[in-house]
Design a protein around this nucleic acid. Structure first.
Lengths: 332, 332
DNA sequence: TTGTACGCGTTATCAA
DNA sequence: TTGATAACGCGTACAA
């Protein structure tokens, strides 16, 4: 029968629990012969230490919580997987486990409880909206190690894509292919990304000495249908745009649909660029040019930083923005 | 200062730990005044029991492991999220936590260790291939509670979509819209789904008294590119099909691409139906008619059954197949 | 109705 | 180099 506890093992091997524990942990203070005897035995009779007993005694927790508020899921279905992959890579490399939590809306009390009950040693929180920043402050007050992903708070470490830079890249690309009248379609005002991308848009225009036209700015709330409406409005202008930068791909699909309906060719009449590089971009007709976020890398980086923060708490919240990249297809 | 342990709480409240424990658990044997005093106090000074101590003492584990082999991820990116959502729903309702594990390939040893070390009380394993069925047997031998999702083994409880029925529905639909020459594109031989869908295909043909033609069966390995090649072959036949049932949507995209390249109209010349109802179906041109799997429900059901299996181990492995549904769009 | 005291399976201290 | 033994914090017979 296979041994269940150290106690049992110790009995069989005629050594103390402590010695086995040492042998398992590669502690130096074990006679090499004793170690060999123990490890040899364990080849046959596998033993798996009870993680709860270990955690209780050592006060160490090797679990990271991954919080997905439901609205973030809706907004970000397409990169939830990559976020998980990046976090999993970090976890595998560092002997951590990932615990998933979906919340109907961001619940800092639940987060606090998970931490205080020692269920998790720290939290990765994905894509909260601006409304939720005060709740984050709550976690900071309670010294919960937190890494915020795809959102920004000055209370805790934040990780994301350099959205301003992304907005700049996108707009610059439209300029580079000769567009003179470039419109911008906003996402939702409660999300961080859109505003930053808008800044990049304005910066690119300014740099190219192109006028900023408020009538070229519409809001699509990150939704397909609203972007379609927004595009209708844009094309109804006396002087409609010849390039549209949509703050995400989902909206870009709506934009292109609306343009097709209006009898415009993409990209000949109006070039369209999106943001996110969701899988559909590749299959759409025309394939959508877009800006890709390094989602996996962001999650991976956040994980590593979080681990660091757990082990050696630091004062000032960190901010790390990774570089987006242009993915040129056919729509622009 | 907020109390960290029952011990501390007991001191402050001048009662024994046991009494607090009772009050927290709504045990009847507590004077209502005592209970009130305790609960009132806890309004201010929140206390979160250490989960490891609790688990150690009670021998209860309220964590379910969700295993995603990497190849399953590749094959099933698009419904990983729904699987997680369904599992999360079950977890929330039953006070369970979800722990995510991604594995480069299915690793039953790791699974065993997670269980024996009391990290998880049971496992939901997603979409293993036929190669992995013996490893599953390993888990059964060790009495690990397992729910297999989107795969089948006679060693453990299995949950999925009724793929044969789905194949039948899809083929029947093509027949219903008047197609006489219906081809089938297989997925990969190592995955369960495809073979079952093929059975449904044959059943529908037989029922309609249409001949089964081996030359109308090609293999696309669930991949876009291979399906494109397969379609070329089909269309090069002397008597090419007027309807194609592709064992998944990803391949259906390749099929439609190949048809367009060959100058065929979809659905007028050749109708195409897929399987899975991935998001792209809706946005593709033409929007793709397909068979939807009730992914969330499958995961949710599996979770509940797993919980049941943990609490009262049963002898015979269960098999539960939920009904797929036809989603009619434009391609067929 | 309330409290005492032991057990859960580790880790870690300290002495041998 | 090894081994008692005391934590760790909660659950729960059993006693009061």
């Amino acid at each position: 029968m296979s041994a269940k506890t150290l106690e049992e093992l110790a009995e069989k091997l005629k050594v103390s629990r402590r010695t086995i524990s040492r042998a398992l942990k590669n502690d130096a203070n074990v006679a090499s012969e004793t170690r060999r005897r123990i490890l040899d035995y364990l080849e046959k009779d596998k033993y798996f230490p009870n993680v709860h007993a270990a955690s209780l005694a050592s006060k160490k927790i090797n679990v990271i919580g991954l919080i997905f508020p439901k609205n973030a899921f809706l907004h970000a279905d397409f990169f939830a997987i990559d976020t998980i992959k990046g976090a999993a890579k970090f976890a595998n490399e560092n002997n951590y486990q990932l615990m998933m939590f979906t919340q109907s809306k961001f619940d800092s009390d639940q987060c606090l409880q998970m931490y205080k009950s020692k269920l998790v040693g720290g939290l990765m929180i994905v894509a909260i909206s601006k409304d939720d920043t005060e709740k984050i402050e709550d976690l900071r007050k309670n010294h919960v190690p937190v890494a915020l992903l795809f959102a920004y708070s000055d209370a805790v470490d934040s990780f994301g894509c350099d959205n301003k830079r992304g907005g700049y890249i996108a707009t610059k690309h439209l300029i580079d292919i000769g567009r003179k009248k470039i419109a911008f379609i906003h996402g939702h005002e409660n999300w961080f990304d859109s505003a930053e991308r808008f800044e990049g848009y304005k910066q690119a225009l300014e740099e190219a000495k192109m006028p900023f036209r408020p009538d070229y700015v519409e809001r699509g709330y990150f939704r397909y249908e609203d972007a379609q409406e927004a595009t209708k409005k844009l094309m109804a202008l006396d002087d409609p745009p010849d390039g549209i930068f949509s703050a995400n791909d989902r909206m870009a699909i709506g934009v292109i649909r609306a343009l097709k309906v209006a009898g415009k060719r993409v990209p000949e009449d109006v070039a369209v660029i999106g943001f996110d590089n969701i899988p559909i971009c590749d299959f759409f007709d025309p394939p959508i040019t877009t800006v890709a976020q390094p989602v996996m890398e962001i999650a991976y980086t956040a994980g590593n930083d979080l681990l660091d923060a757990i082990n050696s708490p630091h004062g000032k919240p960190r901010l790390k923005y990774l570089e987006p990249s242009l993915v040129i297809r056919k729509s622009a």
